[in-house]
């Protein structure tokens, strides 16, 4: 069921830079489900999420030469393009990305996708549940929602200092889990 191909990131990037379409297929098969999961969380609708994913991968194909591996991992770059495309889509539709709906949508998507969920992800999924909700919401808002620390502080009505501390503790907690 999983089409994921094991290939060193450096090698994949080199092939992508030469506009190798087979490499791009590998890229899609390796990363599309993770990115789609994130897009679903942001836009909340499968229909919109499909469009966003398509748009994002076309952008990735067009701009692959601007990826600079000295500045960070490939996934971080892919995520940035996808996240920005999703957020732009929301803005174009004049829909404010609501934090209340993040948490709801997280569980909604989880339920919806449970049928197609990969076996190797079940263990990981359970471990994510170990993350404290107050940590999880901050990671989701920042990482998926593109919120700044100030915006998180405003939305959640907690002091900026607390946002910073929680953000750091959330990552520490996350590293213990994985």
């Amino acid at each position: 069921m999983s089409r994921k191909t094991n290939i060193p990131e450096d090698e994949l990037v080199t092939l992508l830079m030469s506009r190798d379409k087979d490499a791009f297929r590998i890229l899609y098969d390796n990363y599309s489900s993770t990115l789609y999961g994130i897009v679903l969380k942001i836009v909340g609708s499968a229909e919109v999420a499909e469009d966003v994913l398509q748009e994002s991968f076309v952008k990735i194909w067009k701009n692959i030469s601007s990826y600079d591996k000295t500045k960070g991992r490939l996934f971080t770059w892919l995520l940035n393009i996808t996240r920005n495309t999703a957020i732009d889509k929301l803005r174009a539709k004049h829909e404010k990305y609501q934090i209340q709906s993040i948490d709801d949508s997280v569980y909604q998507v989880d339920k919806q996708s449970s049928a197609t969920m990969k076996v190797d992800h079940i263990g990981v999924k359970q471990s994510v549940q170990q993350l404290k909700p107050e940590h999880r919401i901050i990671i989701d808002m920042a990482y998926y929602g593109g919120y700044t620390q100030e915006e998180i502080s405003e939305e959640l009505k907690i002091p900026l200092g607390t946002v910073k501390t929680r953000m750091r503790n959330a990552i520490i907690e996350l590293r213990k889990i994985f």
């Binding site: 379409k21 599309s32 999961g37 996934f75 996708s113 990981v124 994510v128």
Partner: peptide, 29 residues
């Protein structure tokens, strides 16, 4: 290392997109 743990966190909520999305992307490319 931080990126990897966030990647794993993101993978935890991965959802397989419908096959038609893949077809549409490659047709467009």
């Amino acid at each position: 290392a931080l990126s990897v743990s966030l990647e794993q966190y993101a993978q935890a909520s991965a959802v397989e997109p419908p096959a038609r999305v893949r077809d549409k992307i490659f047709a467009q490319i």
